[in-house]
Amino acid sequence: MLRLGCSRRFLGLGRQVQNPVQSLVRLYHERVVDHYNNPRNVGSFDKNDPTVGTGLVGAPACGDVMKLQIKIDEESGKIVDACFKTFGCGSAIASSSVATEWVKGKQKEEVLSIKNTEIAKHLSLPPVKLHCSMLAEDAIKAAVKDYEAKRAKMSGNAEAGTVGKAADA
């Protein structure tokens, strides 16, 4: 009887050890797989459209290139639409897909505060894939900056104040 009690204790221990092994085996989080299988907002806007900001980051030699575009309502400064195209692993595709979802409907100043760590946490990215989320954060910032550079060029002094503010951010 004692042996039974003891062996159960050991068995219990054994099960506890098994669990982390099982979670280690899982490579992609379900959300990554979901975004990979059904990527949101794939596509392109006309990059010459003054209401469109384009962020293109990465390098093919590194295995990751991300293009993220945002369409901004000129009056309110709200991001009305977003789309992406990504050359990269499943995590990079998922990161950019998530990024487009998150920026939609937000103010352009607001999206600058999206951090790569939030994306990485949402997708449970492993350490080797953290650069995918960094790329997504940079793509958002690049898109906003591109939009503002365009505006500054187009309308000169009238918009200069906003540009300055965004540059500070």
Binding site: G55, A59, H131
Partner: peptide, 25 residues
């Protein structure tokens, strides 16, 4: 020329150029 042109926010801090990747991780 298109690479890094549109944006290159703090490349060194981010370090996702290939050789820097390990350091970033």
């Amino acid at each position: 020329s298109w690479i890094w042109v549109t944006e290159n926010i703090d490349k060194k801090r981010r370090g996702y150029s290939c050789s820097d990747n390990v350091a970033a991780l």
